[in-house]
Nucleic acid binder design. Structure first.
Length: 276
DNA sequence: TTGGCGTCCTGGAGGC
DNA sequence: TGCCTCCAGGACGCCA
């Protein structure tokens, strides 16, 4: 499940490989990928474009070209981007390949997505920031992500804290794994009403989320099933989990049992003692 | 306005 | 062995 650390890892790997390269040919094989735009229209708009930069906002990858529009890629559950050197021919048998970009250096950028939740969206330069700002809150590693801004985003909310943390308008890029990990670092229970945190707890939540995200980026993401980096390598974060997926094991901080429950429709792991 | 739930989507695990 | 059911979860739409 690509969250901020996984998307950032992909961005860092692909940026030097894509910057300055031209999209020679674009094939899109999945009608869902570009909805509501037809795949042919998106492929046509991308063909011939030269990449100026590759950025990230939340879980979106943003491909900026020398011309309009920009390409927003969201990997959702199982989307993945791999770069392959020039092939020597022969058919690609991967049934989950949803799109393919041939670059002007002969390499291929392959988009693979088993569950087909991922999206490719074209946005003009002028519409980019309104589009993203409508959907996303602050970046957790941004300086502007302060306890005061977090307090404002959570004020009056009675929903479970974890549900609020998963809300991309509260903080961008957090998914199920880093929500659980961040709440563990913050020593906060996932079922706490989101608007009930005092100043110290808000500061702890900010620190906890940043800690979880920083560790995720340092370890190049978590590979549970589908995620790999653009070279096909696995992330290491799954070896560092404090709570996610560890039900029945002991908390690494207080030795109490880790429990699993369901919050906001998501599997949720937490320490029964030190998260309050 | 807020929050809960269903939907999309497919592979894998587990039960019978 | 084969079939069926459930689970995983990001974003969005719908409804109360």
């Amino acid at each position: 499940m690509p969250e901020l650390p996984e998307v950032e890892t992909i961005r860092r790997r692909l940026e030097p490989l894509l910057t300055g390269r031209r999209f020679e040919q674009v094939e899109i094989n999945d009608l869902r990928l570009t909805r509501p735009e037809p795949p042919e229209a998106v492929a046509h708009a991308l063909a011939g474009q030269r990449v100026r930069s590759l950025d990230r906002r939340g879980k979106y990858l943003i491909v900026t070209f020398e011309g309009d529009p920009r390409l927003l890629v969201h990997l959702r559950m199982t989307g993945n981007l791999r770069r392959h050197p020039a092939r020597q021919g022969g058919p690609d048998e991967d049934p989950y390949r949803r799109a393919l970009v041939r670059l002007d250096d002969g390499a291929e950028l392959v988009y693979r997505d088993v569950r087909r939740f991922g999206t490719w969206c074209l946005v003009s330069e002028g519409d980019l920031h309104p589009y993203l700002d409508e959907r996303l809150g602050l970046e957790p590693l941004d300086r502007a992500f302060t306890p005061a801004r977090l307090a404002a985003a959570l004020a009056g909310r009675r929903t479970a804290l974890k549900a609020a943390v998963l809300d991309q308008k509260v903080v961008a890029g957090i998914g199920n794994i880093y929500a659980d990990e961040g709440l563990w670092w913050a020593r906060l229970h996932p079922q706490r009403p989101a608007g009930s945190l005092d100043q110290d707890e808000l500061a702890a939540l900010r620190r906890g989320l940043r800690e979880a995200i920083r560790r995720g980026i340092e370890r190049q993401g978590a590979t549970l099933r589908d995620y790999t980096d653009p070279d096909g390598g696995a992330g290491q974060m799954q070896d560092e989990f404090r709570v996610y997926g560890r039900d029945g094991e002991r908390c690494l901080r207080c030795r109490s049992p880790i429990e699993k429950s369901r919050v906001a429709g998501r599997g949720t792991w937490f320490c029964t003692r030190c998260q309050t």
